[in-house]
Amino acid sequence: MESGGDWCLIESDPGVFTQLIRKFGAKGVQVEELWTIDDTIFENLRPVHGLIFLFKYLQYEEPSGPIVNDDRLDKIYFAKQVINNACATQTVISLLLNCTHTDVDLGPELTKLKEFSMSFDPKMRGLTLSNSQTIRAAHNSMVQQAVFEFDPKMPVKYEDSYHFVGYMPINGRVYELDGLREGPIDHGPIIPEQDWLEVVQPIIMKRMNVYTEGEIHFNLMALVSDRKMIYERQLKRHLNEVQMLDMDTDEVEGEIARLRMFIEYEDIKMARYQQEMARRRHNYMPFIIVLLQILAEEKKLTPILERAKERSAKKGPKKLKV
């Protein structure tokens, strides 16, 4: 069985991942970017179903825990990555298919994938996933429009490779889901009344410390319940309380106003995600060509190029945010 078709690279962006999930047909969940891994950042995001970690791939990095190869694989959805550029989609799907929270609705496509492939071994699951036309089409719909095309025969400059993995709690233990491994990595139990995020925080920090000092090429995102859905649920509860108890206090009214503001913010955020995706996929080449022609005719192109070179030299190499 061979995996069919090419898979594009996906940008590490919460809007892209959220829209990707919805393209799969899943509901009740979205992705949020994390700027720190301190406890405080999770307070307004709970429930957190999993973490998505992007890092510079080291070919000979040893696993930070034992790799599961026993009968737990019958209950944990883990797919071996068998094609290039699919790690983003595989990480998201692995988190979704292992999530049992009532907020998460997998939808027909992912439900069918899980039911069909859970009896397979990890490699066969990976092949099944990569041969899903629906999932591949959703993945490739996230592609960013290439402004220039390069001759594949030309020598390619070596660039660092980056890889996505997922972390999540499953049956009382924290697992790392990395499609390049032979199975999930077991990071140990979650003790009673302990938040699973307390277990995973030092694991991620330790992994980041493996790299040389000054390395900042990391990105961390959280898979969380749909924020608008959460706020609408809370708003409905407050409105029912006001109606049933005939309450009309400033505190309750303030909370209702706050929730309505959060709902509006989520609507604005999702509209911005769609706008950003439209911009990613738009072909700006005709506009760029006309602009360059105008600048050249007005003899402004060379001075602009020189100023750009000067600014680039002062800034140094561009790096991803932590």
Score class of each variant (00 low, 15 high):
208 M>V: 06
252 V>D: 12
204 I>P: 09
105 D>V: 13
271 A>I: 06
211 Y>R: 07
179 G>Y: 02
69 N>E: 12
81 Q>S: 02
94 S>D: 11
238 H>P: 00
8 C>R: 11
285 M>N: 10
147 V>G: 00
126 G>N: 05
310 E>Y: 08
241 E>V: 04
53 F>V: 04
8 C>H: 09
89 T>S: 13
308 A>D: 05
316 G>Q: 06
59 Q>I: 10
117 S>K: 02
286 P>C: 06
133 Q>Y: 05
110 L>G: 01
138 A>D: 00
83 I>C: 01
191 I>W: 07
271 A>T: 12
285 M>R: 14
97 L>V: 09
234 Q>C: 07
244 M>L: 14
258 R>L: 09
221 M>F: 09
117 S>M: 00
31 V>W: 09
129 L>T: 09
183 G>T: 06
313 A>F: 10
260 R>K: 15
322 V>I: 02
156 V>M: 01
301 L>P: 03
66 P>N: 05
168 M>I: 09
305 L>I: 04
179 G>N: 02
30 Q>W: 04
246 D>M: 11
200 V>L: 07
22 R>A: 07
100 T>W: 10
176 E>L: 05
95 L>R: 01
94 S>Y: 07
293 Q>M: 08
119 S>T: 03
315 K>M: 13
125 R>I: 05
35 W>P: 00
34 L>M: 04
40 T>E: 14
92 V>H: 02
308 A>I: 02
286 P>H: 11
237 R>S: 15
39 D>Y: 06
141 S>I: 01
107 G>M: 13
109 E>L: 13
143 V>F: 04
28 G>N: 03
271 A>M: 08
5 G>L: 11
55 F>C: 05
199 V>Q: 14
131 N>M: 03
19 Q>C: 10
80 K>H: 15
196 W>G: 03
221 M>K: 04
46 R>T: 07
159 E>P: 00
188 G>W: 12
73 L>T: 02
4 G>S: 09
306 E>H: 06
170 I>Y: 14
55 F>Y: 15
80 K>G: 10
126 G>P: 02
28 G>P: 04
233 R>C: 12
37 I>D: 04
115 E>K: 15
251 E>P: 03
9 L>H: 11
27 K>P: 00
130 S>I: 01
319 K>Y: 04
286 P>T: 00
100 T>M: 11
31 V>H: 07
294 I>M: 10
245 L>M: 15
270 M>D: 12
66 P>C: 02
6 D>E: 11
25 G>D: 03
17 F>Q: 05
14 P>W: 05
117 S>R: 06
240 N>G: 12
216 I>D: 13
279 R>N: 04
1 M>S: 13
235 L>M: 14
240 N>D: 10
260 R>Y: 09
17 F>P: 01
134 T>Q: 07
118 M>H: 12
41 I>V: 15
120 F>E: 09
247 M>S: 11
95 L>A: 12
309 K>Q: 12
43 E>T: 10
74 D>C: 12
